[in-house]
Design a protein around this nucleic acid. Structure first.
Lengths: 145, 145
DNA sequence: GCTTGACCTTCCAATGATTGGAAGCCCTAT
DNA sequence: ATAGGGCTTCCAATCATTGGAAGGTCAAGC
């Protein structure tokens, strides 16, 4: 099987297969006499493994560790679980961060009339208004500009 | 005020300030006779605007649009609101995606004994097991070791 | 006045994962 | 034999950011 077919069956683009080989994530593929890369069913299984891990948000470095454990028959499932839980923790951290962004933006957007008037709490906040919950405006800082 | 001070007051690194100038996000700063960039209070305010937008996850391109609206006294708040809501929608999409990853991983990790045995549903799933919800296992995995 | 250290300048490179393209070779079918 | 598609390598771009090298400048102390 050549690289195009391997790509089709694994869901990993030919470009990425070459890249993974180049960076050492996967071993060098076999070659035909004319230099074409060849792949076996096992290779495709490995590529699918990579794709699934990638779909779960694992970085390539972590995928390398997962692949090593996958190949290691004497592995401890604790090591796999630890990688998975680190991944979960990382994702949860990002989710919380984004949720906070959404909360702020949503609050600001709801305060925005969204019509043809220029006044907008979103811009006011970005500009550096002291609080998110616009306090009853103290006669203004005086300088407009 | 030179670039280091502007960086300190705005929370945007000097490197990034130069980068933003180079890419046209911000106008070219003034220069002293010897070539040092100089910044005014207004410049710092703009940099803080950028930093806040960045903290809300806006991409630089969107920040450029926000800056343009900020500067446009005749803007329609609807345009600002639209940018904010596109950002909210994008964030929500990513959050949902990540939550789905967490759900899958969490389910798999909970099924993993996490001890010194090699059997691991996480690897089994990555390998391409048919289902995520391990079906009542045919006579059980049986082998301990 | 001169040295020192902290700051500034530009330019180049790397990150991480992926995509795009160009130039050229190979395979297969007509 | 020729056309087309697929393969090869290499180089470049993405996005936002950081790092470093080489060299000029400023302010302070001696």
């Amino acid at each position: 099987m050549n690289i195009g077919e391997a790509a089709k069956h694994s869901g990993v683009s030919a470009k990425m297969i070459r890249y993974y080989e180049q960076t050492g994530l996967i071993p060098s593929a076999g070659r035909t006499a004319s230099g074409y890369r060849t792949y076996t069913g096992t290779d495709v299984q490995m590529l699918r493994f990579i794709r699934r891990a990638r779909d779960l948000g694992f970085q390539v470095e972590a995928i390398g560790e997962l692949l090593a454990l996958w190949r290691d028959r004497g592995r401890h499932s604790a090591d796999v679980k630890q990688l998975a839980e680190a991944q979960i923790a990382g994702l949860r951290r990002k989710i919380v961060e984004m949720q906070s962004m959404v909360a702020t933006l949503d609050h600001l957007a709801q305060g925005c009339s969204g019509d043809d008037r220029p006044d907008c709490p979103i811009l006011a906040d970005l500009e550096g208004e002291a609080s998110l919950v616009a306090p009853a405006c103290h006669s203004g800082p005086g300088f407009n500009r």
